[in-house]
């Protein structure tokens, strides 16, 4: 464990906590893409299959349970909570997220480290996480005004994988140059997808104005 990875995990955890707080405190999920949240549940379920078979550390197991629990509860709130589900922008959140999941799965069948169920599904989760934010970014462009909590949520979500990139650079130089192409390239794609959001987020923060993405 290095400081960059810990910072990345904490940033990721903070983003999820901010989203849960927004939903529970305001009883609203306006501006949040249910499609992206559902993709994240799939990412965690397919990535943490070895949760009960492989013990890495107390921290690792705890965080996996927290990520699984919070992401599933967010989807539950948006789908079934009587008040929250009324605030879901169903007609704007129209991204066909299966168009994202299927190519990722096919790619995982083609390009992976080893052809086992655990490894292929883990690889699928890495590819899927890279593109899972797309429905959310599309929804933000359609939303007239983005509330601060939603903006912060997306920013932290993008920042966590950027910190993971730094963690991988650090591990490359400190762990006898172990190469991990799959997460590296996927993480690079994932972080790049946030590039224009980062630009508008930082600009709105500097000029102290409302965050607005160009349509």
């Amino acid at each position: 464990m290095n400081v960059f990875r810990l910072a990345g995990d904490m940033t990721h955890l903070l983003s999820i906590i901010i989203l849960l707080l927004k939903i529970r405190a305001t009883k609203s999920c306006t501006g949040i893409s249910l499609k992206t949240q559902e993709l994240y549940v799939i990412v965690f379920l397919t990535r943490y299959l070895d949760l009960f078979t492989k013990y890495i550390s107390f921290y690792n197991t705890t965080m996996k349970l927290v990520f699984l629990g919070t992401s599933i509860s967010i989807v539950w709130y948006m789908r079934y909570h009587k008040v929250v589900k009324q605030t879901y922008n169903k007609d704007q959140d129209t991204f066909r997220h299966y168009f994202l999941a299927i190519p990722c799965f096919l790619l995982a069948l083609l390009i992976h480290h080893e052809f086992t169920v655990i490894e292929v599904l883990w690889t699928f989760s890495i590819y899927l996480e890279a593109v899972a934010i797309l429905p959310q970014l599309v929804l933000l462009q359609r939303s007239r005004n983005i509330d601060n909590l939603t903006g912060n949520y997306v920013f932290l979500l993008g920042a966590y994988r950027a910190l993971y990139l730094v963690n991988w650079v650090y591990r490359y130089f400190t762990e006898n140059h172990l190469v991990r192409w799959i997460p590296w390239l996927s993480g690079l794609v994932q972080t790049t997808l946030y590039a224009d959001f980062f630009y508008y987020y930082i600009k709105s923060w500097k000029n102290n104005e409302k965050l607005q993405l160009p349509a």
Partner: peptide, 10 residues
């Protein structure tokens, strides 16, 4: 490259 990846990250 059958490097068994030890998935020690989240």
């Amino acid at each position: 490259r059958g490097q068994p990846q030890s998935h020690d990250e989240l």
